[in-house]
Nucleic acid binder design. Sequence first.
DNA 1: CAGTGAGCGAGCTTCCGCTTGACTT
Length: 778
Amino acid sequence: MEKNLVIVESPAKAKTIKNFLGKQYLVKSSYGHVRDLSKSKLGVDVENNFSPNYEIPSDKKAVVSELKKLSKQTDTVWLATDEDREGEAISWHLAESLNLDEKKYKRIVFHEITPKAIKQAIENPRKIDTNLVNAQQARRILDRLVGFELSPLLWKKVKPSLSAGRVQSVAVRLIVEREREIKNFKPEVSYRIYAYFQVESKGQKHTFRAELPKRFKTKKEALEFLESCKDAVYIVEKTETKPSKKSPAAPFTTSTLQQEASRKLGFSVARTMTVAQRLYESGMITYMRTDSVNLSNTAIEATKKIILQQYGESYLKTRKYTAKSKGAQEAHEAIRPTFMKENEIKGTQDDQKLYDLIWKRTIASQMSDALFDKTNVTINISTSEHKFQASGEVLKFDGFLKVYIESTDDEEETETSILPPLKTNEKLQLNEINAIQRFSKHPPRYTEASLVKKLEELGIGRPSTYAPTISTIQKREYVVKESKEGVKRNFDFIVLKDNKINETKRSENTGVEKNKLFPTDIGIVVTNFLLEYFNNILDYNFTANLEKEFDDIAKGLNQWNKVIDNFYWTFHEKVEDTNKKSQKFSGERLLGKDPSTGRNVYAKIGRYGPMVQIGDAEEDEKPKFAAILKEQSLENITLKEALDLFKLPRSIGNYEGKELVASIGRYGPYIRFDNKFFSIPADEDPLSINKDRAIELIEEKREAERKKVIKNFDNDSETKILKGRWGPYISHKGKNIKIPKNLNPETIDYNECLELIKQATSDKKKRTTSKKAAKKKK
DNA sequence: CAGTGAGCGAGCTTCCGCTTGACTT
């Protein structure tokens, strides 16, 4: 029998460590936290010093009972959870729920997963750090109090099922405020001047571009400048060459991995995390939820070896990265390949692409700087005060750029060109000068990844919550991820060539957005509500200030319930006060009067989302309601658009003896016909759609339905073979059964079908009974 | 899956941070 039970947080980690420890050690995982505040109740006794009531969630009962059983059979339990606030608390919750007394358990931590580090940890056990545990309790309880008092207030004042919290509400605020900035943004016009010169060197002609540092505000000024350049002579006044360098970026953390995978591979943050999880579980990479840029010495050595082998000594420069982000707890290493010598792996395309990114970033982080010569040239214009500037960059040594180039969010393309050799006092031959009208750009909308970056900068949220937070604010319909096509915009393009000025117009596509986050009406109204009554919680520094208090608790300088006490009562009073005093907060806007009845027309948030309303509740006649369209908004909708919405549902004729009705429902515009629903594409309008188009839509759907059926059976109309999103399946009395890949759906006969159905139903039974059995065990 | 919205009132929703699967028509 094993004498020792080691408990870590993750099963994959348990598996690795098992190999390092001898037979005397049984290694198990807690699967994260094992106890938490009640799922549905507040779980905090505010009258009694905020005493928490912890429960073991139903999905953790089996884990806890197994660990409890094993702990009774062993001499020592080694609590080896992560070395941070949450990890310490997990150890404490384990000790509590497994009934481990001080003599029974030992608390250990290791910073890297190597035999040496683990041996060292075992030799240096300690007790649970109660102060650190208390800091975690303060964090947990405060989040609970804020979330569970603010959310019900929103249900009452704005709309049911909404939510608010320390992290998500700030994330939404960032997006709402960015949108507001963009809305108020007035693009500034300027005219940029570019000159193209030609020089001859060693019998070869080279063209290069120079720019005027001065930008003109008006077309008139730009034209005046071009006019002044007629017959001018251009002479190189000064050339200056300076060395410059670029250093590689630090190894990946969760946040930087999400950003790069978004920019380079187009992954959503959720997709990045799913792929990374798979790589971690198969032992290809280190832990993927980390805020540390640190590489273990072992990893640095392995990386060094690869660089020396593949690129040579001049490319090697080992570095220790320590750049801490705000609130970083650094319980893990940076994200890196487990085995640096594996530069390619098997797996899905996504696996390979993400792994490649991680491998390259890790290697590059230990490589030399890239070296450049930067040249700046000043060009004198004989007829003007102004001077042209040209700059060029020559790569002298590629260094880490051989492997990896970090991308940026910056949309402005910065051209770096190579300049031909130029001498002072050299006379230049002008090809042409262009004056181009440019518009300044509004600040960019957030992508999922750039929002994560911003949250990390503010110290809000943790690596394990970035992806879930992004998904929560979309699930609550506070924000939507959308792409937008741009619009054409004309701009002036003026050319001076051969002493003649030629004015033309060119056009560009502007305002293209791909997978950006936009606030919804609900997101805007909720943010406005919270800003009005709870601006302290929406404050970008709220979390950062709290973290200082939690640090004090961890250092034993303050008591956790005092910190909560300080915050809670004024907060709670504000909640009660707002509950009593404030009216419904619906973002209501009076649009005008309905010309046919003279009643008021409003736009507001209703029980089911944004809507328009004719009439007031107090009037004798009941008000009428209509949901607003997806592309409309409370802030912009006009009286006419609102009145149009009441024209639905709308009869548009008959087909096959039945009525065709166009309207808009919960899932968008549709045609109702013969008690069935046919979606109208988003770019078409149910107000103007005609009978012919409706019939076309119905026939299209019928055709698609027909194509969906792979096989029918004459004797049994309730069993069919269909083609679905996840491949062929059997539809049987409303249930769906997947057809295994080794079978051909075209040739399966009826008996085989029945066999598969039988199999699937018995499998399901087995699964549910085994689950019940596991539950019974405890 | 799809037309709701006043009023009455029951019963539901909700936080953040640790971890994985089960399951999708």
